[in-house]
Amino acid sequence: EDDHHMEFCRVCKDGGELLCCDTCPSSYHIHCLNPPLPEIPNGEWLCPRCTCP
């Protein structure tokens, strides 16, 4: 699979289990988001950068 997502968290710059945005290459740990997510959501997810007006 050709995955163009970042291999590190945009916030802390560390790797591991990352949540990938469905519209851009950004990846995040769920605990690095503000507010943090309790678990990885099902379905499409947009990062804070893509949901800002």
Rank of each mutant, 00 (worst) to 15 (best):
residue 48 P to K: 04
residue 52 C to E: 15
residue 14 D to T: 09
residue 35 P to Q: 06
residue 30 I to E: 10
residue 15 G to M: 09
residue 31 H to W: 05
residue 12 C to I: 02
residue 39 E to V: 12
residue 11 V to L: 06
residue 15 G to L: 04
residue 13 K to I: 04
residue 28 Y to C: 02
residue 31 H to Q: 11
residue 22 D to Q: 10
residue 24 C to F: 00
residue 18 L to V: 09
residue 52 C to R: 14
residue 40 I to F: 11
residue 38 P to D: 11
residue 32 C to Q: 05
residue 35 P to E: 10
residue 28 Y to D: 04
residue 33 L to P: 02
residue 13 K to D: 06
residue 1 E to K: 03
residue 44 E to S: 12
residue 2 D to S: 15
residue 26 S to P: 02
residue 9 C to Y: 00
residue 50 C to R: 00
residue 29 H to Q: 01
residue 13 K to A: 14
residue 52 C to P: 02
residue 52 C to D: 06
residue 47 C to E: 03
residue 9 C to E: 04
residue 47 C to M: 02
residue 11 V to W: 06
residue 49 R to G: 14
residue 10 R to G: 05
residue 11 V to D: 09
residue 31 H to I: 06
residue 3 D to N: 15
residue 50 C to K: 03
residue 24 C to T: 01
residue 47 C to Y: 01
residue 27 S to D: 02
residue 12 C to N: 02
residue 45 W to T: 04
residue 5 H to D: 15
residue 50 C to A: 00
residue 11 V to E: 11
residue 6 M to A: 13
residue 37 L to H: 07
residue 40 I to M: 09
residue 6 M to F: 07
residue 40 I to G: 12
residue 5 H to Q: 14
residue 4 H to V: 12
residue 36 P to N: 05
residue 29 H to W: 00
residue 7 E to C: 08
residue 49 R to Y: 07
residue 1 E to N: 15
residue 21 C to I: 01
residue 32 C to E: 02
residue 26 S to D: 09
residue 33 L to E: 02
residue 31 H to L: 07
residue 1 E to L: 06
residue 37 L to R: 06
residue 11 V to Y: 05
residue 11 V to C: 06
residue 50 C to S: 02
residue 45 W to G: 04
residue 38 P to R: 11
residue 16 G to T: 04
residue 5 H to M: 09
residue 14 D to S: 13
residue 30 I to T: 11
residue 25 P to N: 05
residue 34 N to E: 08
residue 42 N to D: 10
residue 8 F to Q: 07
residue 17 E to K: 14
residue 36 P to F: 03
residue 12 C to F: 00
residue 22 D to L: 10
residue 7 E to M: 04
residue 17 E to P: 02
residue 30 I to F: 11
residue 6 M to S: 08
residue 30 I to C: 09
residue 15 G to I: 04
residue 25 P to M: 07
residue 2 D to H: 11
residue 28 Y to E: 02
residue 13 K to Q: 12
residue 2 D to V: 15
residue 40 I to S: 12
residue 42 N to M: 08
residue 50 C to E: 02
residue 10 R to K: 15
residue 9 C to R: 03
residue 40 I to N: 10
residue 35 P to A: 05
residue 24 C to D: 01
residue 28 Y to F: 13
residue 46 L to P: 04
